[in-house]
Design a protein around this nucleic acid. Structure first.
Lengths: 178, 178
DNA sequence: TGTGACATGTAATATGTTACATGATTGA
DNA sequence: TCAATCATGTAACATATTACATGTCACA
């Protein structure tokens, strides 16, 4: 079974069609909510792996002097992608969510009440900024783009809305305590 | 600066007081929404690192024939923990959220409409089960436990509620499309 | 002509996983 | 007594990061 990054990379190649490793890296780097940096050291070996397994095919594109390799998903690749997406409906995978903000709140005891209140507000600001970003991304997909792209962006917005609401609760609770 | 797992482990030792590596592993393994498995191969080297840096101290506890080492956070450890928690208010960290369910929805194009509808419903079931779990955890903290423990559990519940609401939207949108 | 984006890749390092290895204690 | 839990740790492997290395192309 594909790992998370492998699935995401293969999925990108499926969605955008034949593209270079460089473009895949760029997508990962520019993705607003990304746990991956799209580093060369991860992407190139990963793509070699996918190619060896016959999940992608590479064609040298002699458009210019640059050593350009266009990557395309194969039929086996589509099968593997399908299997990976379908594996999303398990308790274990659903539980593999991680949110560094919640992790931090969990360890707020380490701070003084004043520090807690200050930090909660700062986190809230950072989160609100991030929410704005995801809202803009949603809006840009509303006009052009498929229904599924819209649903993807909607997920980010709803998640960040919930995080903002949560942090407001935290700020309120900390104020009441004082 | 501490990494995520280092911060979490140090935070656990801070919160529960002197405890063994085994207990830390158990907490990580049993944590409902965990991205880490608490494997021995990650925890023991990590604790060695923290000890070498003077962030924790170990005392051999000759309670019985077992080679038991009680780990306690030091003053420097508390400082490091504080710094790590406070580093949570940046755009970069706030963006480091990851949700395998949303990732999967993003690549739904790879499936047929029927498969999409089926999977969305299955994911919803898995998520609802997971939401129940986090609600129970919240309830158990309501009676006993600090306000901060309550806030931590509340974060999980609110996050999972948002995820469920989102997936219901997805299910609805997919049905309308057909 | 030089800077930034395009394009590929490797090396050293960090950090996590599974599987293995060992032994003591508790309780049915 | 035997299985589960407590308790520590290592070895092999997988996978990601940063930093390095090389070269082309577009455009100001």
């Amino acid at each position: 079974m594909l790992k998370e990054l492998e699935g995401a990379v293969l999925g990108y190649i499926f969605k955008v069609g034949p593209c270079t490793a460089y473009q895949v890296r760029k997508l990962l780097k520019e993705s607003p909510s990304s746990r991956w940096r799209g580093s060369a050291g991860s992407i190139y070996p990963l793509l070699e792996r996918l190619e060896r397994q016959g999940l992608i095919e590479a064609n040298d594109d002699p458009a210019d002097g640059r050593a350009k390799r266009d990557l395309a998903i194969t039929n086996n690749g589509k099968k593997a992608l399908k299997a990976w997406v379908k594996a999303g409906a398990t308790r274990e995978l659903v539980a593999e969510i991680s949110d560094p903000v919640r992790t931090r709140v969990f360890f707020f005891d380490a701070l003084t009440p004043n520090e807690q209140a200050r930090l909660a507000k700062d986190m809230l600001s950072a989160l609100e900024e991030f929410l704005s970003l995801s809202r803009e991304s949603l809006k840009s997909r509303e006009s052009s783009g498929s229904a599924l792209n819209h649903l993807g962006a909607l997920g980010a917005v709803m998640s960040n809305q919930a995080r903002v609401t949560y942090l407001r609760e935290v700020v309120k609770a900390l104020e009441e305590k004082r």
